[in-house]
Design a protein around this nucleic acid. Sequence first.
DNA 1: CAGTGGTCTAGACCACCGA
DNA 2: CGGTGGTCTAGACCACTGG
Lengths: 239, 239
Amino acid sequence: MPRLNPLPLPAYEQVKAFVKTQITSGRWRPGDAVPSEAALQQQFGVSRMTINRAVKELAVEGLVTRVQGSGTVVAQLHRISSTLALRDIHEEVLERGHTHTVHVELLETVRANVALAHTFKLRLGAKVFHSVLVHSEDGVAIQIEDRYVNPAAAPKYMSADFNTTTPTRYLLEHAPLTEASYSIEACLPSAHEARCLGIKAGDPCLVMTRSTISGAHVASWVRLVYPGTRYSFSGKFQL
Amino acid sequence: MPRLNPLPLPAYEQVKAFVKTQITSGRWRPGDAVPSEAALQQQFGVSRMTINRAVKELAVEGLVTRVQGSGTVVAQLHRISSTLALRDIHEEVLERGHTHTVHVELLETVRANVALAHTFKLRLGAKVFHSVLVHSEDGVAIQIEDRYVNPAAAPKYMSADFNTTTPTRYLLEHAPLTEASYSIEACLPSAHEARCLGIKAGDPCLVMTRSTISGAHVASWVRLVYPGTRYSFSGKFQL
DNA sequence: CAGTGGTCTAGACCACCGA
DNA sequence: CGGTGGTCTAGACCACTGG
């Protein structure tokens, strides 16, 4: 077979690049049909598996929509999206080239009230671990981490040393994570939170609450409070 | 060849499910080696391409890390992540089963000041379109959309009817979107913003600023203000 | 060097869609 | 029915990693 690919770019990447260019340049508009795999196979002189891989990946990326038996079309709305990752704040700060310090405000075992019992699916009065930490970047407080942990998911949570490992890291390593849900809101800090973060009572805060599931257990529920004036979530969408 | 797959599940999905189970159950821990493709090929009695597809997809999903020449290992941190999509608020509200209404506050053509010229990479004093809309869900204001648009990307923006189509939708349809970056913060509303949203001056707001690129142009810059008490971004991570 | 994953082929059978 | 994509095979060559 003639190998038309002495280039550094794999054949399937060349096919992807071609299709992408047609779309981003506007030559193929949303709703337009993309050539069939057979047609692209002819055009590029590669096997169908290779074409299939290229177009399949574009479908995963959301650029095209494929329907078996019908064909491939350019996706209707370029519903561009980005990933919001569950990250360890320690790594995050280090990546910015800054220093990360922690102050452990509180570490206790409590009995589940109605709300806790409900979120963890435990009985009223069951033991639940509770930790409150303040994270600082270059000495400036940037996050309050108010966390409850299910003892069933991380029995030794209370004996962890949070000066050397963060709760996030500890849990990621000790409770295989399977699912999480989050919500981001804007709130005013409580008097205590304002004091911890060193901000005024009227300064708005970004609050992320997150609940993580590990196998059969609700492993942890956490409320992260960020000073709105010093922190933002940011990211990038890309085709 | 013996076909061991009369099940409805494709072979590669079965392989993925097997590996996933080992990881989520904790039998294979982060850092552990995943069996080589050759080993899995033996175990499942399928071709290497099929094994390769399964493991490759797991790598894309972030469950495992692959290094050519070295092997595959269970990913260090289960860096679970979710997608934050650029969505049309009209669709979003309708999906919740509510009604969406818009009030056009302002629609004008302005001359670029220093800041605008910089974000759009235009010369000082160049024409830029400006629109301010208030979006309501069941009659309650939930978003102020303060948007600037590059005429080069959407020349007819000013003649669009924003009572029948939203700026987001209009731009998605008229300016093939290639890239976007965003940032989410917590802020206090200006007096005018508070009045538009019907909230008090001290009520915190979620503010998303987003800039979108379409081909060679910076197409649009938008500031979305949400009342923090009535709106939150939420989502779900899943393995 | 042997073992790994990265890529590719030239077939094949199937389920599905639209005419 | 013919054309589409979904899946799969049994090979193959390569680049890279580690000892």
